[in-house]
Amino acid sequence: MEARRKHPRRPPRARAVIALTTVTLIGGSACGVSTAADGRPAPTPSTGPSATNPVTGPATERADPLPAPDASIPQSPAKFATALTKTTAALNDAIDAWSKQGLPPEDVELLALHQQRLYRHAARHPETASRAFARLEAPLAAQARDNTSAIRGLVSLARPIKPSAVFKVQEPRPAAELLGHFKKAERRFGVEWEVLAAVMFAETKFGRVKSPSYVGAQGPMQFMPATWKAYGLGGDVHDPRDAVMGAANYLRATGAPRDYRRALHAYNPSQAYVDAILKHSRQIKRDPRNYYAYYNWQVFVLTTKGERRLTGP
């Protein structure tokens, strides 16, 4: 984030790095499939119907194979709607079966990646998306519109990087561990954990992005040094727990939870950014499984010669 101190009595204005992080929400060619040697648990097969899915209706046993990381995206609205419905239902079932501890199982990771790629495609093809979403059940249509418009808004702020640029990524901390940090920060500062999760998701895909931004923002919540010094509570900007606490402290100082729009605009002075965070946090509130789905979305970068994926299977 970028601090501005024109008025000493007001908190410095924060600015996150759009070029480095929000472009991770779109585009890119898929990489190869991870092998069994990576130590990940085997996919958990569905053994029968689970509880009713509020987004896609009653869950059913998965008959379709898991999508490959580079599986083709349907081009027609009807087939796209079917693919999004099936992928979201299967992903929710896989999340329900996951213990939420340690590494995500292969089915969660592959289904989340395919869901992410579907939404990226929708963001790039608004006419197809509009016609496809009209075919969806109302809850999934609302989720699809939120995700697609959030991606499209953040991408509008993206700054392509050179293909030769050094871009460091890393494995994120476990989803359960990060969730604990978000909830502790909520208890301490009153900032909703879903909002904090949405910020880390948009900024660095839950800490997968290790490189500093092009303006020097650092850590999983992307702080500029001056802002971190003022609001970081003496912690380590690269430590997920400290970064979450610092972000909650900053958001509280700039208006949250009374006025999230004001606080998020202070974090990043972009209406598109504010809207995206609120839409993603709304989806997590509507169904906590969306937190685990977002956790498994991967890092894509936009370069001057095209898009590419840097993390995941």
Rank of each mutant, 00 (worst) to 15 (best):
T52K: 14
M221Q: 10
A276E: 11
G153S: 04
R13Y: 06
K162Y: 07
V301Q: 12
L25I: 05
T82K: 14
T311C: 08
R309P: 03
G27W: 09
L66Y: 02
K279I: 02
L179M: 12
P240Q: 01
R10T: 10
R152W: 06
E127R: 13
A134P: 02
G219H: 03
M224A: 13
F167Y: 14
V299A: 03
V169K: 06
Y291T: 02
F133D: 03
G235W: 04
Q75C: 08
D107E: 05
G219N: 02
Y291H: 05
T148I: 09
R208M: 01
R173T: 10
A176I: 14
S281L: 06
A134I: 04
A122R: 00
A63I: 13
K183V: 11
D107T: 02
P212Y: 09
D107Y: 03
A16F: 12
V274F: 09
P11M: 00
F300L: 11
Q116V: 08
L233K: 14
N290T: 15
R252F: 05
V299C: 09
E109Y: 10
L110F: 08
R309W: 06
A37Q: 12
M1T: 15
A247K: 04
V274N: 06
E127P: 09
A97D: 13
V199F: 00
R262P: 02
A112G: 05
H280I: 13
S281E: 07
F80K: 07
Q170G: 00
D239A: 08
R4P: 06
K305R: 15
V199I: 15
R4V: 15
T304Y: 02
P58H: 06
L20A: 10
E177I: 10
R208Q: 11
L278D: 00
I161E: 00
Y250G: 02
D93Q: 15
Q143F: 13
A63E: 14
R120F: 12
R241Y: 11
M224W: 11
T85L: 12
W297V: 13
E127C: 06
G48Y: 06
A14L: 12
E137I: 08
V301H: 10
R282G: 12
T227P: 09
V23I: 14
G32Y: 02
K305F: 03
G306N: 09
A30D: 09
T311K: 05
D275Q: 13
D93L: 10
L91M: 04
V155S: 13
R252D: 05
H181W: 08
K184I: 10
E186I: 04
Y292D: 07
K86A: 15
Y291K: 05
A144F: 00
V199R: 03
Y291W: 10
G102V: 08
F167C: 01
R117G: 03
R289V: 09
P220Y: 02
T227W: 07
T56M: 05
L25S: 13
P74T: 00
L111K: 06
K205G: 01
V23Y: 04
Q218S: 08
W297I: 14
F133C: 01
Y291M: 04
F206V: 01
L136F: 01
E61T: 15
G28F: 04
A16K: 11
D70T: 07
A94L: 02
Y267I: 02
R131K: 13
D96G: 07
V209Q: 00
R187V: 08
F300Y: 12
A176N: 10
N53I: 03
P126M: 01
A59T: 15
D259S: 00
V274R: 01
A19N: 11
T82A: 15
E127I: 13
A197Y: 05
A81N: 03
A71D: 11
D64E: 15
